[in-house]
Measured scan of single mutants.
Amino acid sequence: NQASVVANQLIPINTALTLVMMRSEVVTPVGIPAEDIPRLVSMQVSRAVPLGTTLMPDMVKGYA
């Protein structure tokens, strides 16, 4: 089972991601792979992401 990136806190719209905002977790459906966490740092979210939400490619500007 592949771990995905999950929000560790509420991430407001247009916030630049930092390591403390993200954790890896095995979830369904699968989201952005956990190994991409270093690449996500400083990228902005395109919408508010609630705590515990799996990050999907369309939620991060410039990821897809």
Rank of each mutant, 00 (worst) to 15 (best):
N1V: 13
P33D: 06
N1Y: 14
A64E: 14
V45T: 15
V6M: 05
T54K: 05
T15W: 05
V41M: 09
P50S: 10
T54P: 10
E25G: 10
I37P: 01
N1C: 03
V49K: 00
P50M: 07
I11V: 08
P50K: 12
D36K: 11
A48Y: 14
D58N: 15
P50I: 07
L55W: 01
K61V: 15
V30A: 14
P33W: 13
L10D: 15
P12Y: 07
L51K: 13
Q44A: 14
M21V: 04
R47Y: 08
T15K: 06
L10A: 11
T15P: 01
R23Q: 07
P38R: 10
L19N: 08
S24E: 09
I13L: 14
P38T: 13
D58H: 07
A7S: 11
G31F: 02
S46I: 06
V49I: 09
V60P: 01
R23S: 10
Y63R: 03
T15E: 08
E35W: 12
T53Y: 15
M43V: 05
T15L: 05
V27E: 02
S24A: 15
R23I: 09
T54D: 00
L51S: 12
A16C: 04
Q2R: 10
V26D: 07
A34G: 15
T18N: 06
G52I: 02
L19E: 07
T28W: 07
A48F: 11
M21T: 03
L40S: 01
L40A: 01
K61N: 08
Q2C: 04
M43Y: 13
V30W: 11
V6S: 03
N8S: 12
Y63H: 05
S4M: 02
T18W: 03
L17M: 12
N1D: 10
V41N: 04
M22H: 00
A16Y: 13
M43W: 14
A3Y: 14
L19I: 09
A3L: 15
I11F: 02
T15R: 07
A48V: 14
A3P: 13
T54Q: 03
T15I: 09
P50G: 08
V60C: 02
N8P: 01
D36I: 07
L40R: 01
V6Q: 04
P57M: 09
M56I: 08
I11Y: 01
T54F: 03
V20S: 15
A16E: 07
P57L: 05
T53F: 10
Q2K: 13
L40C: 03
P12I: 06
G62E: 09
A7I: 07
G31S: 03
M56K: 07
L10G: 11
I37F: 03
S24V: 11
V6A: 03
D36F: 12
Q44L: 12
P33F: 14
A16V: 10
L17Y: 01
S4F: 03
P57T: 07
L19W: 13
Q44V: 10
Q44I: 13
Q2M: 15
K61E: 12
T28K: 10
P29Q: 05
